[in-house]
Write a protein that binds this DNA or RNA. Structure first.
Lengths: 236, 236
DNA sequence: CGTGAAGTTGATGCTTCTCAAGCGAAGTGG
DNA sequence: CCACTTCGCTTGAGAAGCATCAACTTCACG
């Protein structure tokens, strides 16, 4: 974690994607004066369950996996995040809500202390309102996810995970490969299964021409077929 | 669904448990003038996924199960709710977020139309702020639930469901039985398993003296033992 | 080029689901 | 009041799905 010369929030290229675009200019400046920015190298922790942070993190740049640890050192990936996203967006107030986050690639992170973020919220009703809507959307998504984990079989879960990855990070315009490199274990942690099962079903989907795998890169060749497999449910 | 003569919000015995206690007196009166109250008989729908409601429901009185339908007519119970709780608390704004709710016993429900609830929020920043915190808590709980559904075995899930029911509805002070009567299927829908599995594990827990079952009533005899079974995880 | 990590694949066993039969309580109608 | 139906619960047996284990291959990185 190395501190970086912070750029101003209003010049941040992630501002458009961020909830902070709802923030008034003068309070954006307040954030500028009080935020702490730092780099995190790929594979390093940004948040750790054992040491909950009292504040709000923003991803200025990079990709992050957010997860909770569980039984037998298994991890459940809660969310994949990218530039403009909030991070550990529940630990900043209230009692402990431990969650972990690891950089999937080199990241630039901004941090605002709990008391400062609270000040911003109290003085930016539009922001508070948007944050409330954001949480309510996330809550709905999480409830759909919970139902899926409870009811889908492994093929459906893996397929669903692939569509989620595509949705979050998209695919490379030239090569068509997903814009992220995740291990089989990480896809398993997202799907609630094991790396062996993921490997088997990816092979099967590859054989069926629905996807194409090259090393740890994955290309989705038919979104329609994937959706047909996973979306026995109306999703939203 | 029969309309009832509405009592004033400020006289509502559920107000203390409700998020609306954050609402200013004059806006509470606004709600009074604009809300619609009605009774729902046990077993009847309050919300249905096929017809999402554009507004916010409040449980004035009664117990409700909130669920999403899934594969093969299975249901996943998302939440058990009681007096003072919000209901379908995400369908009131945004695009469709279909969810179903059924009365577990006779209920009194209050409804505020989307446009009115938005007016209230826009003029009660404290309420908006609290609602935001409420959602963020619920989001965290839902994420823990998702991890549990992905990683726990059936015994742990059933045990966890029992503790959840105890937490929400409590136990009868005299008899010690849980203050709600749920079918085995409903406990299964909460645990993400089948009614037969629930029946088997409840029998086992009964034999081990951890719980006591009498018809559809359940008495938890040792919270400690139940927690020991389910809480291999740090929960919060 | 060598070593450790990640991925693949098949065999095996366990957990869970499904199906089926039987029981008892509650409700219905003659 | 009693037969009859229905519904929920219980229990066992069999089948299916999944995790685990192990052996092997490939890849990544110094």
């Amino acid at each position: 974690m190395r501190k970086t010369t912070s750029i101003s929030c209003k010049d941040c290229e992630s501002l458009d994607c961020s909830i902070l675009k709802r923030c008034s200019p003068e309070w954006l400046e307040f954030i500028d004066r009080n935020k702490i920015c730092f780099y995190v190298k790929k594979g390093n922790n940004i948040l750790h369950e054992d040491t909950p942070s009292r504040g709000m993190h923003f991803i200025q740049n990079g990709k992050v996996k957010v997860f909770k640890s569980g039984i037998n050192f298994k991890e459940q990936i809660i969310r994949l995040s990218k530039s403009g996203d909030l991070l550990g967006h529940r630990g900043w107030n209230r009692s402990e809500m431990p969650i972990s986050a690891i950089a999937l690639e080199d990241c630039k992170i901004c941090f605002l202390h709990e008391k400062d973020f609270n000040k911003v919220l109290r003085n930016n009703n539009e922001l508070t309102y948007e944050l409330m809507l954001f949480y309510s959307d996330e809550l709905y998504n999480s409830e759909v996810k919970a139902r899926n984990l409870a009811q889908m079989n492994v093929l459906e879960l893996v397929t669903d995970a692939l569509l989620y990855i595509l949705d979050v990070y998209g695919e490379n315009a030239e090569t068509g490969f997903l814009n992220v490199s995740l291990t089989r274990q990480e896809i398993a942690d997202l799907s609630g299964t094991t790396k062996e099962q993921v490997s088997k079903y990816l092979s099967e989907l590859n054989k069926d021409g629905v996807i194409e795998t090259e090393k740890s890169l994955i290309k989705i060749k038919s979104v329609g077929k994937l959706k047909a497999i996973s979306q026995k449910y109306i999703k939203h």
